[in-house]
Design a protein around this nucleic acid. Structure first.
Length: 699
RNA sequence: UGCGAGGUAGAGCAGAGGUAGCUCGUCGGGCUCAUAACCCGAAGGUCAGAGGUUCGAAUCCUCUCCUCGCUACCA
């Protein structure tokens, strides 16, 4: 421990094309946050770095499909992701983004330094090109018929139906996933990093020097290194990303896996002018928290880059976690099989610590694990409510009933073995939690913390102060025993706040509030002592730290998941579901910017009746409607043909935006817009609950 | 296909040659300060399967099966 004087902790940069889900939290962000909070409690000099990864081909493709810009996509998800982390108490010192100027400069400089030192080789290769969209295509974005099983939607790198690994050449009838065009080969030049040159060094630094790394991490690295490394392209053909800082490099950007980890450096620069202390001094302990899919990049490629560039510290550890499943199935963003953090926060307000607790205790530290809502409820009800919350509550209640609401004194003359055992128990727990945390065994640390509460309950049960209080004739001597017991219970409660703080910071603060102590009590050095609450202090009224979760709430969550399955089912029969290719089923709802009443008042909303409806020729989605708004009849073109037949909507009342600037669609001028509610892809008319006169205003 | 990690009680995990353990659930009992919470006790395992080494194997070796990841242009 003495070896390091400061800590630099990073958590994988989430990719900004979707919100974060519980798998992200369990695998990476919660362990990282626990570690960081523990270090801060020990008053260590620590910086916790995070941010979104905003480059890469998938974002550009998504933008193309949604007819928007990559920037719009990353802006949207940066906000959602950042808000989710903040609300969950993931205590980043900075949560930056790789689209920021400082990152562009840092990455470009990093590349340039390596370039100037002659550490890249250039190679020309032939890549598939989409002539319609004018972009190079990654293998993944070429679709064709699988030569093995005949699946017509096999990807250029793999067939999802038979699992066979493919190359685009093998596909029968290959076409671009973006435009359906037949891809052509085109020559392109890229800068490669010869990773094989770093092999001897990697063997020494990683294989010999870091045998203490987790099995899954070490094993995978060893396998890569032993099988021989190759040159790897560090640039791509794209116009979204960090421009290659060289002449004649138009249309070339840095490979996202080159720039993303440099994001840790840029974010630190953005955070503090002393960034170099954290990145360049040998007495800094750098730890990367990631999921198992990121192992080679963080353990082999990025360290090789740092080594090649020179002047940077290398990771001391990369405690990668495995994956979290959900109700027995893999979490899937595209199939919407996930518990989204932003939705959890809405559905379970102020219950961040429940999720933090459950995800930590079921974290996939050594193998993939399963999250189920039933387990979530059980752990909350049995462990948090039954054990922890209950101990604190009964301590507070008894203290009020039997000790006048004040911290009772210790009476040395009646102290017994059980009282004396409390201090060593707390000290042993502190030691065990420290050992576990410093070795990245978070589940174990959490269990030790809960064990303290369990010991507290047992102690209280053995002393039975409520029995002693029932014999008034012995009041004088019994009160001393009661005092000792509750004094100890209160000290245990205070210790619990310190122990719980890294895992459940919101709960730790609640305990501080109950005990009327300041947050500084949570400093780690205070753990394992018995002078945290002062004799004679009057404390607050008892409060439950956690409450049971009703069955209906759990059922609602399970139903919500099952509904996504049902929604996906029709696509599954017939043609194979284009799972990853489909636009994510979830449209996260980012709240729009606040507006003033005047902005709202500009809208002219009116109720109208549809008096005519017909399909627009050569357009699958459009219906041409004639809407009667009392004073006049408006022609409106509406994109609802997939949802309604013309004949079934004639006579319906609708809400019309009457002062929207007219717009021509398919040659027809649309004079307004009809309000629709969207429920998971299903459209529903927004109209008055009762029929009103055509032209009635809406406000 | 190859490589890596994992497979231990209903669930989640620990144990790395010497009597299979912890938390939760289940069952039985106790208690009443505490939200049927708390405390005590019990049941529940051919340690994925097969073979081998050994006085002795969950643990070491060989083979097989299952899950997940990586397999170098998904990020």
């Amino acid at each position: 421990m003495a070896k390091f004087n400061r800590y630099l902790i990073t958590a994988a940069l989430p990719y900004a094309n979707g919100p974060v889900h519980i798998g992200h939290l369990a695998g990476c962000y919660i362990p990282a946050d626990i570690y960081v909070r523990y270090l801060r409690a020990k008053k260590a000099d620590v910086k916790f770095i995070g941010g979104t990864d905003e480059h890469g081909v998938p974002i550009t493709i998504r933008a193309m499909k949604e007819n928007t810009t990559p920037q719009a996509i990353v802006d949207k998800y940066y906000k959602i992701i950042n808000d989710s982390f903040e609300a969950m108490g993931i205590s980043f010192d900075i949560f930056s983004r790789t689209s920021r100027e400082i990152h562009h400069k840092t990455s470009a400089d990093f590349f340039l330094k390596m370039y100037n030192d002659g550490l890249f080789e250039t190679r020309e290769s032939e890549q598939y090109f989409d002539e319609v969209k004018q972009v190079f295509l990654a293998d993944r974005y070429i679709i064709g018929t699988c030569p093995n099983c005949g699946n017509e939607r096999a990807y250029g790198d793999q067939c999802e139906v038979c699992g066979r690994t493919l190359s685009p050449e093998e596909l029968i009838n290959p076409r671009s996933a973006l435009s359906d065009a037949v891809p052509v080969k085109r020559k392109t030049t890229h800068w490669y990093m010869p990773l094989q040159n770093y092999e001897p060094w990697l063997k020494e630094w990683l294989l010999d020097g870091h045998k203490e790394w987790k099995n899954n991490v070490y094993g995978q690295c060893k396998s890569w290194i032993d099988s021989g490394l190759q040159s790897r392209a560090m640039t791509r053909d794209s116009n979204w990303g960090i421009k290659v800082p060289l002449p004649d490099a138009e249309g070339k950007v840095l490979y996202v896996w080159f720039d993303a980890p440099i994001g840790y450096i840029s974010a630190t620069k953005e955070l503090t002018p002393n960034w170099a202390d954290y990145w360049c001094k040998e007495d800094t302990k750098l730890v990367h928290f990631i999921g198992k899919d990121n192992i080679v990049f963080h353990c082999i490629i990025f360290p090789s880059m740092l080594k090649a560039h020179g002047g940077f510290v290398l990771p001391d550890n990369v405690p990668a976690n495995e994956f979290l499943n959900l109700e027995g199935e893999k979490i899937s963003t595209s199939r919407n099989w996930a518990v989204w953090v932003d939705e959890y926060l809405q559905d379970f307000p102020d219950q961040q610590d429940v999720l933090r607790y459950v995800l930590c205790s079921t974290a996939p530290e050594t193998k993939d694990n399963d999250f189920t809502w039933k387990d979530f409820q059980d752990r909350n009800d049995n462990e948090l409510v039954g054990n922890l919350s209950n101990f604190v509550y009964r301590t507070m209640v008894l203290m009020h009933k039997l000790c006048g609401g004040k911290v009772p004194p210790i009476h040395a003359d009646v102290k017994d073995d059980k009282d004396d055992a409390v201090l060593p128990m707390l000290q042993a727990a502190k030691q065990k939690i420290e050992d576990a945390l410093e070795n990245y065994r978070f589940r174990e640390a959490l269990q030790e913390m809960m064990n303290v509460s369990r010991e507290g309950n047992r102690y209280l049960q053995e002393k039975q102060p409520w029995i002693l209080a029932k014999t008034p004739e012995l009041q004088a001597q019994n009160q001393a025993v009661i005092d000792n017991c509750l004094h100890m219970c209160l000290q245990i409660t205070a210790n619990l706040a310190i122990f719980a703080n890294p895992f459940m910071p919101f709960t730790a603060k609640k305990i501080c509030h109950l005990l009327k102590v300041v947050d500084r009590m949570l400093e780690w050095e205070n753990a394992g002592t018995l002078n945290l609450v002062k004799v004679g202090y009057s404390l607050r009224a008892p409060e439950m730290l956690f409450t049971k979760i009703e069955d209906e709430k759990i059922k609602a969550q399970v139903d919500k998941l099952q509904a996504t399955k049902a929604a996906a089912a029709p696509a599954a029969n017939g043609t194979p579901a284009p799972a990853k290719d489909a636009a994510p089923a979830k449209e996260a709802v980012a709240p729009k910017a606040e507006i003033q009443y005047d902005d709202f008042a500009k809208l002219d909303l009116r109720v109208g009746t549809i008096i005519q409806a017909e399909k627009v020729e050569k357009a699958d989605k459009l219906l041409k409607l004639l809407v009667d708004i009392g004073t006049e009849k408006r022609t409106v073109v509406s994109g609802i043909a997939m949802h309604f037949k013309p004949e079934e909507i004639v006579g319906k009342q609708v809400t019309l935006v009457a002062n929207l600037a007219p717009r021509k669609m398919r040659g027809i001028e649309s004079q307004g817009m009809i309000l629709m509610a969207e429920d998971n892809g299903k459209l529903v008319f927004v109209n008055p609950a009762e029929v009103v006169a055509p032209g009635s205003g809406v406000s």
